[in-house]
Design a protein around this nucleic acid. Structure first.
Length: 420
DNA sequence: AATTTGGGCTCCACCCTGCA
DNA sequence: TGCAGGGTGGAGCCCAAATT
């Protein structure tokens, strides 16, 4: 059971090419977003040179060449210790030293960023490039876009030199472990852990995790730590959890009917919930987009901007739902039409029902930024909202096929079983 | 990538009790 | 009366889960 543990957060430098799955649309969108933000960051360093990395050897050749000059360099890459690293931005400090700037689409400095930059600095130093200070350039989440985009206000630049230097001492040892893992013939000796899915899903996840059986301890609701604990004791099945092992009330419900695959139903709690619905009932769902770089005036980075909603109105109990929908036709200010349409369709009374309704609530609050005249109306609307997630998160109803999830769309263990 | 939210955990102030 | 030890409750923090 005991085995090698991947050094957390460094794996993404080490994917074996054959193990990298094709990029799906969502991942591609994240990459594109990163590219846009990267280009915006470059605009802050005039006279910079972007290294041509269309081929690996050409990238290295150009990096060697331009490092002799002193203008800012973008995407410059070097090799040492049999590893390769590429820096987003390198700015010359004096004749011998450079400052390293890493651009992230995040809105704060995270531990993984420190590890990332430490790796880059380590490789660069060993390649003979002298690095003075390290900076992280990330997104100011409070930046409110006006008509013109202001890159200077959009970014925050923070000195992380000290944290990087504290981290850099761990790199040599991490590299040893990582090489061993990369060269391993199979994964039977590699220990799974949170590093497999945090901060991102590892590309080797589908190789290391399938040993888990169906109905495993990883189905436990909010129970990943408990699952790892049980795994260390050799317990992988829900039904094998000992009676004296401490579980929350919801987790106990998961074990009821687990074996015979039947639903647990708390009729009283469900009835209480249903009785809260006041008619006419409005079933609502928002569709939104969000971008790191705000494209509309009076919006912030990553703000969810709504453009469409379906609404089903049930006038009285058991009556046939009436369908109403909205699709924005404006490209400048989406919030105003959206709010006006909602106001016209939602009436003055009756429950407004959504799944995970705090999302809908947040979107409406976001619209108030550019449409404050709806503040009064919002106050009247919010108390009417009822969250359909309540009966599921509260385990009023639970079926083992939910795998510990109250989501309409996915569960944690689907990560392991999606190929079956 | 962010956000919200509730649960669970930790920390600490406070109080009570038992004892010298 | 003072002190140590144990129990209790609130504040604050972190994590996991849901949505787009």
């Amino acid at each position: 059971m005991l085995g090698l543990q991947c050094p957390k957060l460094l794996w993404y430098h080490f994917n074996r090419p054959s193990d990298i799955p094709p990029i799906d649309e969502a991942t591609q969108a994240v990459f594109d977003e990163g590219k846009n933000v990267g280009e915006l960051a470059k605009s802050l360093y005039p006279n910079g040179v972007t290294i041509d990395n269309s081929s690996f050897t050409e990238g290295l050749r150009q990096s060697e060449k331009y490092i002799q000059q002193k203008q800012p360099l973008f995407e410059v890459g070097f090799m040492s210790n049999n590893c390769y690293a590429r820096a987003d931005i390198l700015v010359s400090y004096d004749q011998t030293q450079w400052d390293m700037i890493e651009v992230k689409t995040s809105t704060k400095v995270k531990d993984e960023h420190i590890k990332d930059v430490a790796f880059q600095k380590f490789i660069f130093m060993n390649a003979g490039i002298k690095i003075r200070n390290c900076y992280l350039m990330f997104i100011n989440k409070d930046y409110l876009r006006k008509k013109e985009l202001s890159p200077k206000e959009f970014f925050i630049k923070e000195d992380i030199t000290e944290q990087v230097d504290n981290e850099i001492i761990n790199i040599p040892n991490n590299l040893l472990i990582l090489w061993e893992i990369v060269n391993a013939k199979d994964v039977s000796n590699i220990e799974i852990g949170t590093q497999c899915y945090e901060p991102n899903l590892c590309n080797l996840h589908d190789k290391c995790w399938p040993f888990l059986p169906k109905r495993s301890v990883f189905d436990l609701y909010i129970g990943k730590q408990k699952a790892f604990e049980l795994l260390k004791k050799g317990i992988t099945l829900l039904k094998d959890i000992p009676d004296n092992f401490e579980l929350t009330d919801n987790q106990k419900i998961q074990l009821i009917n687990n074996k015979n695959n039947a639903a647990y139903i708390n009729k009283e709690a469900i009835n209480n919930f249903l009785n809260k619905i006041q008619y006419p009932a409005y079933y609502l769902d928002f569709e939104t987009f969000s971008t790191a770089i705000p494209i509309l005036e009076n919006t912030k980075p990553y703000q969810q901007v709504p453009f469409q909603y379906p609404l089903h109105i049930v006038k009285e109990k058991d009556s046939v739902p009436v369908h109403v929908s909205y699709l924005s036709e404006r490209k400048d200010d989406l919030g105003k039409d959206f709010m006006e349409s909602l106001k016209n369709n939602l009436g003055d009374a009756g429950s407004i029902i959504a799944y995970n309704a705090k999302f809908e609530r947040g979107v409406i609050e976001g619209c108030l930024l550019s449409n404050p005249e709806y503040a009064e109306w919002t106050k009247k609307i919010f108390p009417r909202i009822l969250d359909l997630i309540e009966p599921f998160r509260g385990f009023y109803y639970y079926h083992p096929d939910q795998k510990g999830s109250a989501s309409l769309k996915k569960s944690f263990t689907d990560l392991n079983w999606k190929k079956l």
